[in-house]
Computed example of a mutant assay.
Amino acid sequence: MNRDASPMDRRQRTRLLARWAKAYASAVRSVDRLDLNTWFDLWHTLIDWRSRGNRHAEGLAEIARLTYALLQHAEQRFSARNAPIQIFASVCEDTGSNAVYVHSSNPHGTPFPREFPNVQWGVDAPIELNGIVDTTVHRIGRVHYTDETVHIIERKGLP
């Protein structure tokens, strides 16, 4: 992640926190509009569509925090669902790629549950997630790609 991002001044921080709160609320509404009884083929939503969190050190942690909060919201929303579902989050070096996914058996044949063959589970949280993820409930995995490292967060023991 862009650990050399510059610090925000007070006005920038206030403006960006308000923008991200609005983006978070929009993502929550997207999750809330989903039909609990339908199928999902890696449906996902983002908080930081324009990667603004990459510009400032505080943004990295804030977008990671909001992504985790959205994961928890989606899990709560689908807790009443009768059919198996998989909900997970990705926390990426580019905050614009942080996402929460909802996945189930589907007619497209996308494997369910989604496997993460190259993910190393049980790793320490990246600095942006320190103190945020409840590791008694969720597990954190890490996968290295050619151009970035991605952390996956999912509920332990599901689906």
Rank of each mutant, 00 (worst) to 15 (best):
D147C: 07
K22V: 03
R11H: 04
T38C: 01
G59P: 10
G96K: 09
V28S: 01
L36G: 07
W20G: 09
V100L: 08
S97W: 15
R77G: 03
D48Y: 07
R10I: 12
E154R: 15
S6Q: 11
P7R: 03
D48L: 07
S79Q: 13
D134K: 10
L66G: 01
W121G: 10
N54F: 05
D41E: 15
L17S: 07
T95V: 11
P126G: 04
T149C: 11
L66P: 01
S105A: 14
A23S: 15
E128Y: 03
S26W: 01
H44I: 00
A57L: 07
N37A: 07
A23L: 14
R13W: 13
A99R: 14
E148V: 02
W20T: 08
A18G: 13
S26L: 07
T45G: 05
D134V: 09
I152F: 14
T95Y: 11
A57R: 10
A57C: 01
R13Q: 15
H56K: 03
H108A: 14
G131A: 10
A64C: 05
V119G: 03
S26G: 03
V100I: 14
V137D: 02
I152E: 04
D9T: 06
F116D: 03
E128C: 09
V133M: 08
A5F: 06
A18V: 01
L36H: 04
S30M: 12
R50H: 12
S30V: 00
N54L: 08
W49Y: 15
I140A: 06
V91H: 03
Q76E: 11
Y24L: 08
W43N: 06
R3H: 07
P84N: 01
W49S: 13
I47M: 04
T14K: 14
T45Q: 02
S6A: 12
L42A: 11
P111R: 07
R33S: 10
R139C: 13
N106C: 14
P126M: 05
H151Y: 15
K156Q: 15
R29T: 02
A21Q: 15
R33H: 10
E62T: 12
I63P: 05
R142A: 12
D147L: 13
N2Y: 14
G157C: 08
D41L: 06
W49V: 15
N130S: 11
G96I: 08
A74I: 02
Y101F: 15
H138K: 09
I63C: 13
L158E: 15
E148F: 10
I127L: 04
E128W: 05
F88T: 05
H108Q: 14
G96V: 08
D147T: 14
H56I: 02
E115V: 03
R142H: 05
R50F: 09
D134E: 13
L17N: 13
A27P: 07
R77L: 04
G53L: 11
E115P: 00
H151R: 00
T146S: 14
L66C: 01
N106Q: 13
M1D: 05
N98K: 05
P84H: 02
N82K: 11
G122H: 08
A83V: 03
R10S: 12
I127A: 07
P84L: 01
V100M: 10
T110W: 11
A23M: 11
V102Q: 08
P111A: 08
L70F: 09
A25F: 00
R15Q: 13
V28G: 00
A89C: 06
L70S: 07
M8N: 02
L42C: 11
E93C: 10
R15V: 10
A89E: 04
Q72T: 09
N82R: 12
